[in-house]
């Protein structure tokens, strides 16, 4: 895992870099069919509607945009470029359908971009085997996706076991991880997901994603399905985990308070485009777009209702 976050400088390789990324869907509801992990070098099985893996790096925008018919689809991600530095916690904010989940899923090649390229620590992800790529990243989804037929221990250690780690090493790692996410190991390791609350399930989901010490963590609205109080706890835990592990975290959310509270920098998306990417304070002071401005204003009005005399201070929470 890269600890280059200490030496922040313009010469450090960004953890993730998006260059003119495009993604188009044919159906207007934006739904893609069941995802399949691609084989090395491209997917020979082309099923109806499924995205195939491009064999070569697609040049910036030109190849796909011209060939597709504009009327029958829409761009979920439209010419997006951004750089994410190692060790940052980036929140991606936008309403439903703005493309944030699509962007996340292109980062671990669950979706394939139609144009542009994505680099992980300087290497084009298209050139890597998708399965190996995903094993280098952690992936957490809103429903937790814990396998109901496995205990917590088996769930957390599922990738290590597939990588043929020795049982003792797996066990120790599970203990370590459960402690990290705030669950008493001996109490929880033999339980089944159906015996856990929503918040506990999400913690296990986090533990599972961190099992192989990935340098990059992808989180897709992980706290969307839990109640507000649990969510607050989990947010604090996430900040602590990020501090302790030092990795790069990409966190998708539609909640502006969550995005501004957690993110070192926030990416605001709408309609597939990146509107602004800055620290929360900068965005509040200098919104780059009318949409961003409206967003800030509505959030501020809510804050105003609760507490008009105390300024919003991020420092106090850390």
């Amino acid at each position: 895992m890269n600890h280059s976050s200490e030496k922040e400088g313009l010469c450090a390789v960004p953890a993730i870099e998006y260059r003119n990324v495009y993604k188009r869907f044919d159906r207007t509801d934006g739904k893609s069919l069941r995802v399949r992990p691609c084989r090395k070098g491209g997917d020979k099985r082309k099923k109806q509607g499924e995205e195939s893996c491009p064999d070569a790096e697609a040049s910036a925008g030109a190849s796909s945009a011209g060939a597709l018919k504009e009327e029958s689809g829409f761009y979920a991600v439209n010419n997006l470029s951004a750089e994410i530095r190692d060790g940052e916690l980036i929140t991606i904010l936008g309403s439903s359908g703005c493309g944030k989940t699509t962007l996340l899923k292109m980062t671990n090649r669950l979706y394939e971009p139609d144009g542009g390229s994505i680099l992980l620590f300087g290497e084009d992800i298209q050139k890597q085997d998708p399965v190996q790529l995903r094993r280098k990243m952690g992936y957490v989804i809103q429903q937790a996706g814990l396998f109901p037929h496995m205990t917590v221990e088996d769930n957390v250690s599922v990738i290590p076991r597939l990588l043929k780690w020795e049982p003792a090493r797996c066990r120790d790692r599970v203990t370590e991880l459960l402690e990290l996410v705030g669950l008493e190991p001996d109490q929880y390791r033999s339980r089944y997901p159906s015996q856990l609350s929503g918040g506990q399930q999400q913690r296990v989901g986090l533990a599972r994603a961190l099992a192989t010490k990935p340098g990059v963590m992808l989180l897709d609205e992980p706290f969307g399905a839990v109640d507000a109080i649990t969510r607050l706890n989990l947010q604090n835990e996430l900040l602590r985990i990020h501090r302790e592990t030092g990795g790069t975290f990409l966190f998708v959310t539609h909640d502006i308070h969550e995005a501004f509270r957690l993110g070192n920098r926030v990416m605001i998306m709408n309609g597939g485009r990146l509107l602004q990417m800055d620290t929360p304070e900068t965005i509040v002071r200098k919104p780059a777009d009318p949409f961003v401005e409206t967003l800030i204003r509505s959030a501020m009005e809510q804050e105003h209702f609760w507490n008009s005399s105390i300024a919003f201070d991020r420092g106090a929470d850390k």
Binding site: V131, R134, I141, G145, V158
Partner: peptide
């Protein structure tokens, strides 16, 4: 979402 989560983990 279960199979997607599994694919996302690198299975």
């Amino acid at each position: 979402f279960m199979t997607e989560s599994a694919a996302g983990m690198g299975m």
